[in-house]
Design a protein around this nucleic acid. Structure first.
Length: 283
DNA sequence: AACCAGGCGCATA
DNA sequence: TATGCGCATGGT
């Protein structure tokens, strides 16, 4: 799966490697809109974080992301997939914006893209998210990685593998202060390692089967399953309904999401989530 | 200093 | 099928 763009990306800049993403794209909105929990903004405006086995500093460019300067083709392809660069957003935004309410949500923060994260990390992250605040979710995940991931330097760590968690007890996870969610993480790790849940198959299974598979895990209900499929499996038709989106549906779409948005419900959801939380919607 | 959080499991009816 | 409650812990 070599990427012909890679050599051009290196040569054209000399120093840094550029991941080209056509506008509208905002690195900050994309990394900090509540879909990923391991990116932190630096004082200099760069974003620092880990995905997969890579620890990176990124910064926004007019035409995409500055990935840094020591990067090989394999890593380039990883980030290409992570930012879902192969998906053309302009036509999607144009289509869903035919609905006036969605148009408002898109216009409020048009640079958001839905990331293509690792399914295991997404599963764990959204198990941890339940009945929790985003700042605390980030803290628990950071402690989880520090305790059971592999060090990458600068106090950054990989996300722990299912195998690394499967043999643990809730007591072992006590330092995370994850509360009642600790045993959910362990159950997830065990069901993934023993094959009861096949994360790879979630990409291609029929939606209802994929949901049912994930919900075999204790602590995984409709919302966490949907988040795993959307953020971890590239299933952009999946539509997580949390308290915020519940409010959106009640107030803005009492008769359901517009048909034109259904194939990209998950993308629409991310715009609506950000919009309802941060825009001044009452008027 | 309470309040309640990107929910879920379980007990009731 | 539909409600309602408790849950660990701690940001705001």
């Amino acid at each position: 799966m070599g990427n012909p763009i890679f050599s051009h990306a290196v040569e054209s800049t000399g120093q840094r490697v550029v991941l080209p993403i056509p506008p509208p794209f905002s690195l900050e909105l994309t990394l900090d809109c509540g879909q990923a929990f391991r990116w932190e903004k630096q004082a200099d405006g760069r974003f620092r974080g880990v995905a997969g086995k890579y620890f990176r500093y990124f910064s926004q460019l007019d035409n995409g992301v500055d990935l840094g300067n020591v990067i090989d083709e394999q890593e380039y392809n990883f980030w290409y997939d992570y930012f879902d660069v192969g998906r053309a957003y302009a036509p999607i935004l144009e289509t869903i914006s035919r609905n006036l309410t969605l148009a408002r949500a898109v216009a409020f923060a048009p640079g958001i893209r839905v990331l293509h994260q690792d399914p295991w990390e997404a599963l764990c992250s959204f198990i941890i998210s339940q009945n929790n605040h985003i700042p605390r979710i980030k803290g628990i995940i950071a402690r989880l990685c520090a305790a059971f991931g592999e060090p990458l330097g600068e106090e950054m760590y990989t996300f722990p593998t299912p195998q690394a968690l499967a043999c643990l007890t809730p007591d072992d996870l006590a330092p995370l202060r994850a509360g009642f969610r600790a045993r959910y993480l362990i159950d997830a790790a065990q069901k993934v390692t023993d094959g009861q849940v096949d994360l790879h198959a979630l990409r291609t299974l029929a939606p209802e089967e994929a949901r049912a598979s994930l919900r075999k895990i204790t602590g995984v209900g409709a919302k966490v399953a949907e988040c795993t499929l959307l953020y971890g499996c590239g299933r952009v038709e999946c539509f997580p309904v949390d308290v915020w989106i519940g409010r959106v549906m009640e107030e803005l779409f009492p008769q359901g999401l517009p048909e034109i948005a259904v194939p990209w419900a998950g993308i629409a959801q991310q715009f609506l989530f950000h919009y309802i939380r941060f825009a001044d919607t009452d008027k």
